[in-house]
Design a protein around this nucleic acid. Sequence first.
DNA 1: TCTAATTTTAGACTATGTCTAAGAGGTGAC
DNA 2: GTCACCTCTTAGACATAGTCTAAAATTAGA
Lengths: 137, 137
Amino acid sequence: MTVDKAALLEARGIKPSAQRVAIADYVLHTDEHPSADEVWARVKRVFPMVSRATVYNTLNLFVAKGLLRHLVLTEGRLVFDSNVDQHHHFIDEETGKIYDLPWDTLEVSRVEQLKGFEVRDYQVLVRGRKRPTRGAR
Amino acid sequence: MTVDKAALLEARGIKPSAQRVAIADYVLHTDEHPSADEVWARVKRVFPMVSRATVYNTLNLFVAKGLLRHLVLTEGRLVFDSNVDQHHHFIDEETGKIYDLPWDTLEVSRVEQLKGFEVRDYQVLVRGRKRPTRGAR
DNA sequence: TCTAATTTTAGACTATGTCTAAGAGGTGAC
DNA sequence: GTCACCTCTTAGACATAGTCTAAAATTAGA
Ligand SMILES: [Mn+2]
Ligand SMILES: [Mn+2]
Ligand SMILES: [Zn+2]
Ligand SMILES: [Zn+2]
């Protein structure tokens, strides 16, 4: 797994330092939409000496290289998303958790006809409450 | 205008102090989606002694009373929206400016059928570049 | 091995928002 | 009109998130 990550970073022109691989190992896998400080806390469990600056630098580097997106969806939290394909988001207003909604679960009409705006990207932002999942998880 | 604003505040159970009316005079009118500090800067032009805490308190009070919404759409900026009706937003990625898109310019299908989610509210978030408006403005 | 470039580090700094404690202002009882 | 009480405003402290800096550590190449 760690080897795969090193190769993936190199493919994007990123030198795979131990810190960067440790960060990649968590953040490129998760569907949790973590904040930078959540990534820091998590990575410290396996790499206690890693600094806050390195985590922030690395996350911004991953965004610049297209491995991550960052989203600003909830108050005071810049959040990282390992799903770089187009998709929508659901925000649970009680827990603050962010869930991915696959692109084709929703359909938006007339976006391309917006007068006076050159559209580069769009998504639907849904807020509400996630129903408890019975059974699995 | 100021008289109207005082009456509007009273109708929502807000005592119309001079500071609150001055803040309302700007923020309940504008379509600029200003941040709290932008509101502060603006209000100081007509009310130089108003404090930062009062502006923040007042904006949060207006939100609690339903006169304003706050949006978290762009990096590091909690922004206030005097349009409390349901509508979509367009974000100009060059300027950071936020534009309202009236509710019926776009249509979203299948939101209500989302499995496992209780939907309370949604909007489409469009990013891109606003085309220069020729003619007016 | 020596050198130069890159990366990491701790902590300072900035920006945005909240909280606190004191004072000012308004309102009603008398 | 005075007083007491309550609300509101104020300055500044505090909190949190993110960026920047300068020095140390690491890496890679000559
Ligand atoms: Mn963060
Ligand atoms: Mn602000
Ligand atoms: Zn996502
Ligand atoms: Zn709006």
